[in-house]
Design a protein around this nucleic acid. Structure first.
Length: 504
RNA sequence: GCCGCGGUAGUAUAGCCCGGUCAAGUAUGCGGGCCUCUCGAGCCCGUGACGCCUAUGGGCGCGGGAGACCCGGGUUCAAAUCCCGGCCGCGGCACCA
């Protein structure tokens, strides 16, 4: 279904055109995550927008892992695959893939060029001393030493002559620039990888480019024409432009968009890491339903089309956006309602024994009333079903009810919490005439324990339920639990099924 | 503290760059109806930003006046849109990405 609808929506919304496409000839965009954690909705915004623009202009789209900090934002070995998986799930494919920690020699080449043309220098001042000078707009004594000295010192850095903190490479900028952060920023620093090994390259390198250097160089080397990234990168653009100026490169077009957050969700990577570290047993992992990671949204039954649609609606605005869960839920519901199987799950179950039914009785239920999603069949040797307590109460006062897609039942008794009923012939019309409720039900013989996990703010509530046996065959599927809500079958065990609740 | 961005309905946002088409769009929410076996789903209709009147259910905004997109001022025939000031909120200011 969604392809046509999606396309129609996109066309209607229409991403605004990219600036200066003519001067670049073709469009090339990139998504450049740090593989230190799974990606969240904010990252997905950059990924989806970049990918969509590349597609829109029939250009290239590049995936680049920015893993040049083995010490503070240490890459997570499994994150590389995790991110690829998330992107694929979102329907994103990429033409090229790069890992920065595998491109170190390239960065060394460029910085040597930069040192040779006097666009950078090796700074041997302690950090605090440099900061003092910088804050008053003064150059450090190493700034004006000749290129030969700089190159020599850089080689010494590579050889391990200096230890952490003793030497950095700085890019020459404008020392009078109003924002001190821009003044002669650090391009390379020494990281002792014998103490902080890099998951990809181990202790092979000790001189590491900073984000600003590696990203700036790669954007040029890979022919990136349009950069779409978060507003928090605004100063980085200014910093990076100095390299381009020194080397005579043309800086790509930049579009900064605002932050996205989801009301009531945790989106900060550091916060998620912290929570996982401190309360490991209280969380279900990187994709815990209280987190705003793509993996978490997937795990709780949000469909990729929903996320894509949401991001395209948000567009490229520079203002921050807080999307409400209600909004995501309604978007998701519209799509899921059409494509997901419907099953019966009963909360707070009450037994109902039906008399006057020929046994064994075979009942076939469709997974969807309008789409052909198949059926499931149950053979009843005992006419006993579970229904929800609140439905039982209502049936008691109205005298009967209809078991959806099965039979009408007149209530004849209520003993020790077990309802007794009599099967009444006829279809839905009969039930409607009586004003009886049409309810979901689960045959007692074919019931499995279902635990529904519902994220409520910071709490994760366990709702014990019973469900149809067929749930055991639906592992990983997003389902509609009729008159209960949408969710995804998270785990199937011999005696119980776990469902993560998405939304009503 | 220093740079930068923003403040539109209950909520989330569109529009602002290029002033009139905005008595302000969309989604959600809310109200009602329909319903193909979900009345906690779906579909349809209505309801929203200001003012006035009201028998409080709702009604009226045709011409003129007033009012209407944080507040106050200004420019203009005309401002949600441009300018100035204020208040509030957010982001950046790492040998992080």
């Amino acid at each position: 279904m969604s392809v046509e609808i999606q396309r129609a929506k996109e066309e209607k919304k229409g991403l605004p055109p990219l600036p200066n496409v003519e001067v670049w000839g073709c469009v090339c965009t990139r998504f450049a995550p740090n593989p230190d954690f799974a990606i969240h909705l904010g990252n997905a915004r950059a990924a989806i927008l970049s990918y969509e623009y590349a597609r829109m202009y029939r250009g290239r789209f590049v995936l680049r892992f920015e893993d040049t900090d083995p010490r503070i934002k240490t890459p997570l070995p499994e994150a590389y695959r995790l991110i690829e998986e998330d992107l694929r799930w979102l329907g994103i494919s990429w033409d090229e893939e790069y890992v920065q920690s595998l491109r170190m020699e390239l960065y060394y080449d460029v910085v040597k060029k930069l040192l040779a043309v006097g666009g950078a220098y090796v700074d041997l001042c302690p950090a605090h001393k440099f900061r003092e000078l910088r804050n008053v707009g003064k150059p450090c004594p190493h700034r004006d030493e000749p290129p030969e000295t700089q190159l020599e010192r850089f080689d010494k850095m590579l050889e391990g002559f200096y230890s952490e903190g003793e030497a950095v490479v700085r890019v020459k900028t404008d020392l009078s620039y109003p924002d001190p952060a821009v003044r002669d920023w650090v391009a390379f620093r020494i990281i002792d990888t014998s103490k902080h090994p890099h998951p990809v390259t181990g202790d092979k390198y000790i001189v590491w480019p900073t984000y600003n250097f590696a990203a700036a160089v790669d954007d040029h080397l890979l022919g990136i024409t349009h950069i779409l990234r978060g507003r928090e990168h605004a100063v980085n653009t200014i910093k990076q432009m100095f390299i381009y100026k020194h080397l005579g490169w043309r800086y790509p077009e930049v579009i900064n968009f605002g932050r996205v957050s989801i009301e009531g969700f945790i989106l900060s990577k550091s916060k998620m890491k912290e929570l996982l570290r401190r309360f490991e047993d209280k969380f279900l992992g990187i994709d815990d339903p209280r987190f705003g990671t793509i993996a978490a949204l997937r795990r709780r039954g949000i469909l990729p089309e929903t996320i894509k649609q949401l991001i395209l609606e948000l567009g490229v605005k520079s203002t921050d956006a807080t999307v409400s869960w209600e909004n995501i839920a309604s978007l998701n519901r519209k799509i899921a309602d059409r494509v997901c199987k419907r099953v019966f799950v009963v909360e707070d179950p009450v037994k109902l024994v039906i008399e006057g039914m020929t046994l064994p009785h075979e009942v076939t239920l469709r997974f969807h009333p309008a789409q052909d999603l198949g059926t499931r069949k149950y053979v009843l040797n005992r006419a006993e079903v579970f229904i929800t307590r609140s439905d039982a109460h209502e049936a008691l006062s109205k005298g009967g009810l209809r078991l959806m897609e099965f039979t009408n039942v007149r209530i004849v008794g209520n003993e020790n919490g077990v309802l007794r009923g009599k099967a009444v012939s006829g279809g839905v019309e009969v039930a409607k005439e009586h004003g009886w409720g049409i309810v979901q039900w689960v045959p007692v013989e074919h019931a499995v324990k279902v635990v529904v996990l519902k994220a409520e703010g910071m709490r994760l509530r366990r709702i014990p339920c019973v469900g149809e046996a067929v749930l055991k065959n639906l592992a990983g599927e997003v389902v509609q639990m009729v008159r209960f809500g949408f969710g995804r079958v998270d785990r199937v065990e011999r005696r119980a099924v776990r469902v993560i609740y998405a939304h009503p």
